[in-house]
Design a protein around this nucleic acid. Structure first.
Length: 273
DNA sequence: GCGATCCTGGCC
DNA sequence: GGCCAGGATCGC
C-alpha cells in the first residue's frame, strides 16, 4: 500500500506521540519481525518517543536511550493511533500502549511489512535501509548523482529503475507511473537508450509526483488512512494510474496498461516516448 | 535482470 | 475458482 507520500503523511500524523512514554508492547504470534527477537521488542517498555523519521518507505520511531523501532508497511500495512480501549482490528500485529492510555497499532493483513530494531537514529544499521538510495528531498541528490547511479544499470527499463529502492527510494507502483508521465518518458525505454537530460527529467518528475502526493495526504485507492484515520486525496489527481482505457486526467491522451516485472504499468504512449 | 515467493482479501 | 493488489527478497 504505502509509498513515500503515504508514509510521510503517517509520520506527520503521529507527531503528537512525541514525548509519550511506552507502558507495554504486545506482539501477535505471527508479527512480521525483521532481524529481532520478540523479547527485544518487549524490552522497549518505559522508553519515551523522542522523534519520528522517515527513510524511503521506512518509518523510524526514535526512542530515548539505545535502540529505535523500524516499521515498514509493505503492501497492506496501517499504523493507527487510538485509545487503548478501542476494539482490535483483525491482523493487529503490534500494540504499543502508552502511559496516557493512547495506543499505536500496527495492522498488516498480508504481513509483507516488517517490524525491527536499529541502533542508529538514521537506521543505517538496518538491512533494507542501508541499501536505499538518497532521499529525494536531499539537496545533495543532484541530477549528476542520479545519472551516475542510473548508468550502473544500463539494461533496466525506466519503470524498473523507478521501482529500484537502491536508486529512487520511496517510489512505488503508483508514483512510478505518475513520475514517468510527469517526465513524458516511456516506461519500456532502457536506461542505456535514455540521454542524461531525459534522466534528469525523470528525477524531477519523481520529485513532482511525490510532492503532489504529500500535499494531498497520500493516495487512498481502497483502505489507506493516516495515523488518525484520515483518507488521502491524491487518487483524484492521478494522471495515469488505474486509468486503462480512459484518458489521462489532463486529457492529453489515452491510457494503456502493460505488465512489467510482473506488475501493472499504466502509461500514455501519446505523451510518453 | 527476471521470476517466483511470501500472505490475505476482494472482486469477477 | 482464478486473478489481482499500494512491496521486497531470494534464487537463478
Amino acid at each position: 500500500m504505502p509509498e513515500l507520500p503515504e508514509v510521510e503523511t503517517i509520520r506527520r500524523s503521529l507527531q503528537p506521540l512525541i514525548g509519550a512514554t511506552i507502558r507495554a508492547l504486545q506482539l501477535s504470534p505471527v508479527a512480521p519481525l525483521k532481524n529481532c527477537a520478540a523479547s527485544a521488542v518487549a524490552e522497549l517498555a518505559q522508553r519515551t518517543v523522542v522523534g519520528l523519521h522517515r527513510r524511503g518507505k521506512f518509518l523510524l520511531v526514535a526512542l530515548d536511550r539505545a535502540s529505535h523501532l523500524v516499521l515498514h508497511l509493505g503492501m497492506s500495512g496501517q499504523l493507527r493511533m487510538l485509545a487503548a480501549d478501542m476494539p482490535l482490528a483483525r491482523h493487529t500485529h503490534l500494540r504499543i500502549t502508552f502511559e496516557d492510555r493512547r495506543e499505536l497499532r500496527y495492522i498488516d493483513p498480508r504481513r509483507f511489512g516488517g517490524i525491527g530494531l536499529c541502533q542508529s537514529a538514521t537506521g543505517e544499521d538496518f538491512p533494507g535501509i542501508a541499501r536505499l538510495g538518497p532521499e529525494l528531498n536531499d539537496a545533495r541528490f543532484t541530477p549528476d548523482v542520479f545519472v551516475a547511479h542510473c548508468r550502473r544499470h544500463p539494461l533496466l527499463n525506466l519503470k524498473a529503475l523507478c521501482l529500484d529502492q537502491r536508486i529512487l527510494a520511496g517510489l512505488g507502483n503508483i508514483y512510478a507511473c505518475e513520475a514517468l508521465y510527469c517526465a513524458a518518458l516511456s516506461p519500456t525505454r532502457l536506461v542505456r537508450d535514455t540521454p542524461d537530460d531525459a534522466l534528469a527529467r525523470l528525477l524531477a518528475g519523481a520529485r513532482r509526483a511525490l510532492q503532489l502526493g504529500i500535499d494531498q495526504g497520500g493516495t487512498t485507492l481502497k483502505d489507506y488512512v493516516d495515523g488518525l484515520g484520515h483518507r488521502g486525496k491524491m487518487q483524484d489527481f492521478l494522471q495515469v494510474y488505474d486509468r486503462e482505457g480512459r484518458h489521462t486526467l489532463d486529457g492529453r491522451g489515452s491510457v494503456v496498461r502493460i505488465t512489467q516485472q510482473g506488475r501493472s504499468t499504466w502509461w500514455c504512449p501519446e505523451v510518453q516516448v
